[in-house]
Amino acid sequence: MKDKIVLSQGFEIQGADFVRGGEASCQIVEALRDLAFPPEIVRRAGIASYEMEMNMVLYADHGMLSLTVTPDAIMIFADDQGQGIPDIELAMQNGYSTATQEIREMGFGAGMGLSNIKKNSDKMQITSTVGEGTKVHIVIEANGARSNS
């Protein structure tokens, strides 16, 4: 029954907006801290949401990053309209990237994004249609690890 208490927040993400790119994940981190999630959980959610956000900035036209929190879990959902991923299995591999030279020169596109998201989440689901967009859904469980400080 506890699961009925839910917090939802949505952040609009604009493709190629490097000035504001990263702000949404910062706000997610701040919110999770205020909600008394332990530092390790917040850190994982911060890294995963940052990668999800930057993937949209780098590869999509625009998209939405949503945070849903229940007392037991953190769910982050990225839904974008953009180029999509032709081969998800390949894209999940460490070091694989379709990033252009310009993106790499900015320090992105090392091919660690998706694997980093997976590493920092407990569940990850990804679907994509080439030419339409990509949806990434992750869950970070917060069971039992709640801090009281």
Binding site: T70, R146, N148
Partner: peptide, 8 residues
């Protein structure tokens, strides 16, 4: 709040 439900 230390209780996440109340904090939410």
């Amino acid at each position: 709040d230390t209780d996440t439900s109340i904090a939410i």
